[in-house]
Each structure stands twice: as structure tokens, then as C-alpha cells.
Amino acid sequence: MSILLIAEHDNASLNAATLKTLAAAQQIGGDIHVLVAGAGCQAVAEQAAQAAGVSKVLLADNAAYGHFLAENLGDLVADLGKNYSHILAAATTTGKNFMPRVAALLDVAQVSDIISVESADTFKRPIYAGNAIATVQATDAIKVITVRGTAFDAVAAEGGSASVEAIDAVFNSDKAEFVGEELAQSERPELTAASVVISGGRGMQNGENFQLLEKVADKLGAAVGASRAAVDAGFVPNDMQVGQTGKIVAPDLYIAVGISGAIQHLAGMKDSKVIVAINKDEEAPIFQVADYGLVADLFDVLPQLEQAL
């Protein structure tokens, strides 16, 4: 068996999601090659070469891959992937974007968002917003898989010494072009990587009140998230959304503030180690999954919490 794993990165450094995907690859077993495709991403290839369990790094360094467009990445990965038994990527918005193209080009199914490796062809994955867990067996010769990072512990980032091989193939579609991007700037940790997350819901009433959460977050070194209700109400941008269709998080501590606990939100956070719910409605379903519940007005609690930490 041989595995082609597509690295997630920003052309400067390797994303932690890649190390978690590597953990899934190690459980499948076999030779692991990591593809670093990007523009000016030599440093990323060097980082990938040091990650535990990697036997070879393939570096496709070309402007065509600089913005990770699915059309170009899909063609490249399908071309390289023909000779592997498994193709893996993190289930991030990048992985979700190009991997199904790879599967279709290779005429095989994709298994999305796996949370465990049962054997080389059998995996578990959540369905129905995590309200059921399916065990599925992929019978195609090549298994195309995306991996849910929160379900795997990252492998060591250092210690390996894989060789780096340049890939010259360039796939550059003229049908899609990058126009621009607006990336959220924040001093706080990234939502999916933070060990503490504090999220606000509709109970926050408006976007300005999220400052109350941010103050607590700064005391805890936490990331700030939101429920879909808070995003839909326009309080905060969508990249803060935790839930079935937003980000999936599993921090050591998740604090849900003014969030009722719809199943779509629970799908994004219920694997957190410790859950705290703060809500003035004691009937709110969030209390059914919370380890610690505080029935109180969040506008009283948040300043007190900031003081107490």
C-alpha cells in the first residue's frame, strides 16, 4: 500500500491539519508520500519532510497552485494519484473543494470526513449532523478520503528526514482565475486548533457584545466562535461559525454562551472534552450535553468571569 497525502498550507508554513491527517495515514499503513503544491512553498516542503512517518515529499512549486484552485489541484492530484492505493487530505475548505474532483477524475467514490480508521478499506464517518456514525467500506482500487482533524492526534512535526522530489507537471486551467481574498486577521488562536473555544449565540443580541466574549477569550488564550443563529443575525462573520456546516471543533474546553444548542451546533462541538453552557433559559438543550451549566444572564456572568480568571 502507498498513500499520497496532500499537505494543507499557506505557502509559508504547514497547517496543523496536515499532521492530523498524517496520523490517519499511519493508521492505514504503508509508504506515505506528501504532496506540497503551491507557489514559493519550498519551506513548507522542508517542514513536511521532517514530519513523522513521511517517506517522500513531492514538491509542485508553480504559480498555478498558489491559490489552491480546485481545477488545477484536482488535475495534478488525479495525475499523481493514479499509482497510489489511498489519497488523503484534511477535510478543510481546501480539501473539500478539490478532493471530489480527484475522485471523479479517477472514477472512484470519495469517503468524506472520516473519524476513525477500522482497516485499510473501512472507516467511520458521521452522518446526519453527527447524530449517527456510519461504518463504510470503500471497494474502489483507489480510496479517496478526507479526514476530520479533530478525530486524530497530530503526529510529531519533527524528527523525520524524508527526501524532497520536485514535480514539474503543471496543470493550469484557463477557466478559473483567482480574483482576491479577504482573510480574517486575529491575534487569537485559530478556531480549529485552539485548546479553549468560547462561542456566542443569538443571546449575545448584537455584534458589539461579542467584545464581552473576546475579553474572556484573551484571559484564557481562547478562540472565539459563534452559532449559526449569531452568524445569520449578522453579529459576526461566517468564518466564526461552529456547527454541521461550519467548523468542527473539539477543544479541551468549550464555553457556549447564549447558545440554545440546536443539533446543527452540537454537531460542531460535542466532541469537546469539557463543555460549559451559560444560558438564562434552563430548558435550553445545550444543558443536556454540558458538563457544567450555569443558568444566569450572560451579561452578568461574562464580566464576572473575566474578573475571576
Binding site: H67, L69, T92, T93, T94, D174, K175, A176, E177, F178, V179, G180, E181, E182, L183, A184, T192, P237, N238, D239, K247
Partner: peptide, 14 residues
């Protein structure tokens, strides 16, 4: 305009 993990990305498609 696409919702991506870090924010928004805009692409032009033929």
C-alpha cells in the same frame, strides 16, 4: 465569492 476557513476568496469562472 467563497466561504473558506480563513475568510473569503473570490474567483472568476468562465
Amino acid at each position: 465569492t467563497r466561504e473558506i476557513d480563513g475568510g473569503l476568496q473570490t474567483v472568476k469562472l468562465q
